[in-house]
Design a protein around this nucleic acid. Structure first.
Lengths: 242, 242
DNA sequence: CGGATCTACGAACAGTGTTCTACGTCACTA
DNA sequence: TAGTGACGTAGAACACTGTTCGTAGATCCG
């Protein structure tokens, strides 16, 4: 008996299921170019998200990319929620975890966070799925384990390290989601709305007098690249650790 | 000419429109109990989200609560996106901003963030709308102005303060969203899946040996109330400020 | 060869946001 | 006072969404 999608999902969450036999049985349309597999579904999904953003990721779009109907996917995937989880799992699996070096724990943690951020930004809006996906996923836990190892090697107390990892991963996801949404808003607005930095400054200057500080420090509020802010926040959190 | 919803929306973003005349003109169904107004829509929407979560907030549900059809809403609201923006605007308007006290800036900032968190958690999942909503909303900016005033009074450099506010609001939204989603997952799973802390510990213990640190420090990883983690992260960021 | 088993897929269902069009009722003008 | 234009209210419909049901077809095991 080949595993149902439900069992695959349970296995991913480490709920004690037997080993899964591949059981590559071919279906009715034997003459098709590629049989539908979970990996093929994931690959198609990534392609769609990379090209058109997470909002464009629908079951029908994936099915169409695989030249089939929507219902065919449900033999390999439980849900769209399940597909989301598979995506962020695969995404986390790509993260390279360095061998912990006590003298460079700060750079190493920053490096992992930056990898995660860049993966999220490569597939715009996918971090929204990361919020919904349960943290019991094995691939997600692998990243947590890696960061924990780095922090512990750096001499951080276990309790502090555990909570800090939570905060860091949460922030990285939130940052990526916000950037993705902002980019989408920019791209969607039919030009003309393109808010350059000077336009932003003008708008701050036009604020009513109930916003004295925002008006005075408009320059500071609008300064910096996105990644500058990212680095700043990471530094903020890491400096508090030790 | 009474303002179209588009104009109302533009006014909220401070785009230079004339003053809006109320023009409370009654429609055809003069005998209805309450005429449909933007405020009535917002109130109904909040009621739905508070009772059933953000996922249940649909145009049809709001319309049904107002005893009308979905299309009637579009005379007062541009979009669902627009409705979302109205909601988080109203939500931010409820935040009380203290008079800056240089000696207590830490507590004051924490207080504002806690208010924001509790508002988000009162309406589960609504923080998802906060991510999408443009930061040019006046009510959102008011909160930013208040936090900026507190940090500046506390002697924080303007550039640091501006970026820190960004990070803080982003984290508060992310935290609230994650908690809301986790609660929903817990409530939705048909009992039996209820993962108490001991069940969580058991599951950590059952991890493969590739997760040595996660297994050893399972207690630390699962320790603490949610709000403990929130306070911890806020402390982390604020300590880095000065 | 026969029966069991699993994949693939078309059709359909209950939802979603949004738009079009008509319908009354109101406020203002001649 | 009668007419007229404007505006809020809806009903119906469109193009979508995720998901399920039933069925046809190919494969494997006995």
């Amino acid at each position: 008996m080949s595993p149902t999608p439900q069992e695959r999902r349970a296995a991913r969450h480490q709920l004690g299921t037997g080993p899964d036999a591949p059981a590559a049985r071919r279906g009715p349309s034997g003459g098709r170019k590629k049989p539908i597999t979970v990996d093929a579904i994931i690959a198609s999904a990534f392609g769609i998200v990379e090209a058109e953003g997470y909002e464009a990721l629908t079951m029908r779009r994936v099915a169409a990319a695989l030249e089939t109907g929507p219902s065919s996917l449900y033999a390999h995937v439980v849900n769209k929620e399940d597909l989301d989880e598979l995506l962020i799992g695969r995404l986390c699996a790509e993260i390279e975890l360095p061998e912990p070096d006590p003298d460079r724990w700060r750079q190493q943690i920053t490096g992992v966070c930056t990898q995660l951020r860049d993966q999220y930004l490569r597939y715009p809006g996918i971090s929204r799925a990361a919020f919904a996906s349960a943290p019991s996923n094995l691939d997600t836990l692998r990243v947590g384990e890696g960061m924990l190892a780095i922090l512990l090697a750096g001499g951080i107390a276990p309790q502090t390290a555990a909570w800090a990892i939570d905060s860091l991963m949460l922030y990285v996801g939130a940052y990526s989601l916000e950037v993705s949404l902002a980019n989408r808003r920019l791209a969607r607005s039919d030009e003309e709305w393109v808010v350059g930095r000077d336009e932003l400054l003008r708008r701050f200057a036009a604020l009513p007098d109930t916003f004295p500080n925002s008006k005075r420090y408009a320059a500071e509020l609008t300064a910096g690249t996105l990644h500058d802010r990212f680095d700043f926040t990471l530094g903020l959190m890491l400096d508090g650790l030790g």
